[in-house]
């Protein structure tokens, strides 16, 4: 896990999301998986946003995925990469790509889950290229 990034704002866990953030501290990224309709979702909710069932599991992703789209935010100091990553489980997450050369990133590129520590010390899920450049 990287050192604390003062520029990375922290989430504010609430009664519903506390489990998600505790898992993140263990190095797991959870997503919603509905037992009633079979649809997966992210960010995870207690009520399925597809069918409104309360039978929602929050499994952990295997952490492997590909870049669906990304953008290098040039105004960042230093510039940083905003991205959507599609996980092998079929769920896409809004995240950052880290530990990479932004100029060499491509849509479809394989990435893996890592964690970075946000301002408060809470780890948050980010991704880095599998063949780290």
């Amino acid at each position: 896990m990287s050192s604390i990034d003062a520029a990375r704002p922290s989430p504010t866990p609430n009664a519903e999301t506390k489990e998600f953030w505790v898992a993140a501290a263990r190095g797991e990224l959870l997503f919603g998986d509905c037992r009633a309709c079979g649809e997966k979702h992210y960010y995870p909710r207690s009520i399925c946003p597809y069918c409104f069932s309360g039978e929602v599991d929050w499994p952990a992703t295997c952490g492997r995925g590909t870049i669906y789209s990304f953008s290098v935010v040039r105004r960042g100091n230093p510039p940083y990469v905003s991205a959507y990553v599609t996980l092998e489980e079929g769920v896409s997450v809004f995240t950052n790509i880290v530990n990479c050369d932004p100029e060499r990133l491509m849509i479809g590129q394989r990435v893996r889950l890592v964690f970075e520590v946000s301002h408060s010390g809470q780890p948050v899920a980010v991704f880095q290229p599998v063949d780290s450049c």
Binding site: S10, Y68, R75
Partner: peptide, 22 residues
């Protein structure tokens, strides 16, 4: 959605840019 977006420093223009890139 705040906790799932703010830590990634969402940028309005980057959001539109990702649509353009795709």
């Amino acid at each position: 959605e705040s906790g799932f977006e703010l830590p990634y420093r969402p940028s309005l223009v980057a959001g539109y840019a990702m649509c353009a890139k795709r």
